[in-house]
Each structure stands twice: as structure tokens, then as C-alpha cells.
Amino acid sequence: MSTQAEHTTTNRRDFLFVATGAVGAVGAAAVVWPLINQLNPDASTLALASIQYDVSPIAEGQSVTIMWRGLPVFVRHRTEREIEEARAVPLSDLKDPETDEARVKEGHAEWLIMIANCTHLGCIPTGQSGDFDGWFCPCHGSHYDSSGRIRRGPAPANLVVPPYEFVSDTLVQIG
């Protein structure tokens, strides 16, 4: 009977019980976090976050794939026709509306630089193919146009343009 009476009011012991439990939970979380955080990209992976690349050897109409942060990156030297084709598309035709101008650097419209992983599930699309003179992803059938924008298929977004700038007319810094 006495135990029941004790529990009708909150007493010092209840407070200590909750306080101890709370401190214990914080301690447990503090121990678990580094055990999970070790899975995140390590210093050696992060160190490769910025690269420079000379685009001058790439002929018009040619496309190369280079590596940045372990990801493949397309550098495509577009022809006049491909640029015009990309700019002629009305935005209303696009699944992920974005102008071609917004996807290249001003004055360097012939250079299209994009992360080469399909935005669906990460395969590398095949260049100069598909129904829109851009890329075709063989994995799940996404078609990208000559500006790397998604036109048909399961991919939700345009090929991603990484942060980059032209250091000189022919030298690009990615990252």
C-alpha cells in the first residue's frame, strides 16, 4: 500500500531516475555518432574535390569523359547545329525546364560540362545518341538532348552541371 502512495506524487527519486536516463541517452548517442560518421567520405576522398582540365585538344563534335571526385564528367565540344537545336526547344517541352544558356558559361556555349551519371540511377549514358542528338542511357532508357536535358524516360532531372569556371580560354577548373 505504501508503494502506491509514494507513486501518487512525483518525488526526488523520479526526478533522479529521469535525469539519469537522459544523461545516459545523450552519452549513448555521443558514442554511436562516431561509429556512424566513420562511414562518411574520408579526408583522402574529400581532398580530390577540385581539378583543372585543358579542353584545347577536344575537337568540335568530340566528347571526352574525365574523372572528378570519383565521378565521371562529360566535356563535350558542341557543334553550332547542336547548340541551335538545344536553344530552339521551347521550355514547355521539357520535363525539367532549364534554358541551354543557363547550362553553359557565357562566351563558352560550345563547351557543355556535366556529371556523366544519369540522374535516374547513375549509369553513364551513351554520347551522341538517343532521339534528341544528346545522350541515351542504356540502363533504363532515358533520352537527353544536346544540352543534357532530360527529354524522355524515367530520369527525373537534367544531367547535373558541376560547379566550374574557365580559368583561361582553354583551362577549366571543376569543383
Binding site: 556512424i36 567520405p41 576522398t45 571526385r69 570519383g70 540511377l121 547513375g122
Partner: peptide, 30 residues
């Protein structure tokens, strides 16, 4: 690559979870 990209479909935190799972920006040694 294909299956780990499934994680990136999760709104907001997807890309961070993917990097946590892969230990990098793409499938690699980690």
C-alpha cells in the same frame, strides 16, 4: 551504382545518405 542511387531518391537527405552508404561521391574502395 544503380542500387545505391536508390537512396538519392529520398527527398532532402537522399544525397547525404548515399554518400554515407558509399563512403564517397561514387562507388569506390571504401
Amino acid at each position: 551504382t544503380v542500387i545505391s542511387n536508390i537512396f538519392s531518391a529520398i527527398p532532402l537527405v537522399g544525397e547525404s545518405i548515399k554518400q554515407l552508404v558509399l563512403g564517397g561521391f561514387a562507388v569506390g574502395n571504401p
